[in-house]
Design a protein around this nucleic acid. Sequence first.
DNA 1: TTTAATTTTCAATAATTTTTGAAAGTTTGA
DNA 2: TCAAACTTTCAAAAATTATTGAAAATTAAA
Lengths: 168, 168
Amino acid sequence: MKLDEAKKQFVAAWGSFGSNWGINRTMAQIHALLLVSHEPLSADDVMEQLAISRGNVNMNLRELIDWTLVDRVIITGERKEFFTAEKDIWKVARIIVKERKKRELEPMLKFLDSISEVDGDKNDKAVKTFTEAIENIKKFSLQADKTLDTIIKADENWFVGTLLKLFK
Amino acid sequence: MKLDEAKKQFVAAWGSFGSNWGINRTMAQIHALLLVSHEPLSADDVMEQLAISRGNVNMNLRELIDWTLVDRVIITGERKEFFTAEKDIWKVARIIVKERKKRELEPMLKFLDSISEVDGDKNDKAVKTFTEAIENIKKFSLQADKTLDTIIKADENWFVGTLLKLFK
DNA sequence: TTTAATTTTCAATAATTTTTGAAAGTTTGA
DNA sequence: TCAAACTTTCAAAAATTATTGAAAATTAAA
């Protein structure tokens, strides 16, 4: 397969993969494009290669920078800004875990606390089912939170070593 | 807080949580409603409590059953079908992991295999960057696949025991 | 400064996804 | 068998989300 064709397919696949995960398609495509580029790209490069508008590129690049998945780079002698993506996939995974935890899990934990106390007889089956469900979800989420924290802090070697051994 | 109010808030929260994860909001809301119900609900109950149409309820319940998150139950003397959700949150998590792995990770792995060989000089920086990126993503995905398999097979005790200890 | 290059914003528009609801299909009891 | 109860389907409509592109803002060279 030709390099350009393979790149194109990868960008498309990564885009649809991302959109399963609440990340918009274009954002994932730009990320994919930068992941497989051997040199930094300008906004114009991205516009051209993905055939999308300047505004769209700008907004999604900003979002990627916000996630710390992409960095602006200065190229001497160039007026334009250029962009590169973090290439270490373990680091990428840790960044995504960290961001999603912050944006989703932590608010959920806060919310669960806020509804854990309901009026009424604790022996009432309806009340009991509800409070037990919430308690279990809270326990689970706290555990997930801790586990994810450890993963975020861990490096690849820890992962491949300890965890892989554990999961033989 | 009153039980009904707490339930309503939980359903709304679970719905928006779900939609971050590529699960449609209504599907997540129906799941939430069943999670905190002490008795099975009929399609009419769901329609009424969530104020949504019959068709919508039907389609999303079918999807939930397909995911094995919800079961049909027969109530003697009743003509209608009723529905309950799996209440064990660890089991729920394992089901979701399993389904998403099947629907997303496995196709991605297949795809990565299909583009790993590109024409051209292996010393060409562009080719090298691409093949290395794909190889790394493949390695990562294979590792994730294995790890998730172990999690799917594990039970809660294993989780809380071994994994929690590991993650002190 | 001034001006040209570049980036950002955002209202309008387009694309996509979800929901509705009525008609068609199925099941069950009499 | 019939008919009422219930479930499923799916085209059209509504809601949501993403994209465009031109104008405004910013930046940097001269």
